[in-house]
């Protein structure tokens, strides 16, 4: 049975997750399974992308100044999609920061350690969350307003065509574990509160936070998935897979940054700089 403090940690993390992330797995599944009165607009070629850009501009890019928006249309499709990805990433990093602050003990850490945990954790967490928005055929975007097909993303020119396919492959394996939002909340907290990130000063404090989250996650999985005793070790393996996925993603972004005319958002530059 779960101790009361573990139960309260499970509940606290689930509540913080639902509060801070505008999209979650339950919501995404409603869109992906067609159980909504407003199905997402399917983006599968250049024409449908242009249509979506007009129809879903704010959801795809937020409040980009209108001047920037018109010059955006003159840029090639790959550069525009890269910008949408960046917008979604910046938004998720912002949400993850708020979620991290809700993890008991995180806000009391030295500020440099908080920065380090986010720098190394946000992309792993982002790709774990992204899986909720994916199925084998594509990716839900623009807060559920759009669905970009996997084939269209694969058809882009290199190196952009290499960007999403590894995330789909990870997502298909990860989604097979059938986690729900209450499981994912603890999994994301465990990703962020990781005691072996480079350059941490108060490792023992972070390890204590990590230990309580991992303990809660193990008990949560036993209670929420009683028929799948191997789920916990399988999920721990996913932490290693995510680290590999981020390393490869960071290399690809550095390559794009060097060889393409695609500027990188300052927040993402901070995260990638001297990462691995």
């Amino acid at each position: 049975s779960q101790k009361p403090d573990t139960k309260s940690l499970v509940r606290q993390m689930h509540e913080a997750y639902l509060k801070h992330f505008h999209m979650n797995k339950a919501k995404a599944r409603v869109f992906l399974t067609g159980k909504t009165s407003t199905p997402p607009f399917v983006i599968h070629d250049m024409d449908t992308l242009q249509h979506a850009e007009r129809k879903l501009h704010t959801q795809l890019l937020g409040n980009v100044a209108s001047g920037d928006a018109s010059s955006l249309q003159e840029r090639e499709v790959e550069a525009r999609l890269f910008l949408f990805c960046q917008y979604a990433s910046v938004e998720t990093v912002t949400e993850l920061t708020e979620f991290a602050k809700a993890v008991p003990g995180f806000a009391a850490l030295d500020l440099n350690d908080q920065v380090t945990l986010l720098k190394y954790g946000v992309y792993e967490a982002l790709f774990a969350l992204l899986a909720s928005c994916m199925n084998k055929d594509g990716l839900l975007v623009a807060r559920g307003g759009g669905f970009i097909t996997r084939e269209f993303l694969k058809s882009l020119r290199k190196p952009f065509s290499d960007m999403m396919e590894p995330k789909f492959q990870f997502a298909m394996r990860f989604n097979a574990l059938e986690l729900d939002d209450s499981d994912l909340a603890l999994f994301v907290a465990a990703i962020i509160c990781c005691g072996d990130r480079p350059g941490l000063s108060d490792v023992s404090h972070i390890e204590r936070i990590q230990e309580s989250i991992i303990h809660a996650l193990r008990l949560q999985l036993l209670s929420n998935h009683p028929d799948n005793a191997l789920l916990f070790p399988k999920l721990l393996q996913k932490l290693a897979d995510l680290r590999q996925l981020v390393t490869e993603h960071a290399e690809l972004v550095q390559e794009i940054n060097k060889t393409e005319d695609a500027s990188l958002h300052p927040l993402l530059q901070e995260i990638y700089r001297d990462m691995y």
Binding site: Q86, V90, V93, T97, E98, V115, K119, G199, E270, I271
Partner: peptide, 21 residues
């Protein structure tokens, strides 16, 4: 580290700061 991660630092200290693209 804080100097090299000004936006992350700002997000950690101030929840209402927007990060525009």
């Amino acid at each position: 580290l804080k100097e090299k991660h000004k936006i992350l630092h700002r997000l950690l200290q101030n929840s209402s700061s927007p990060v525009d693209l």
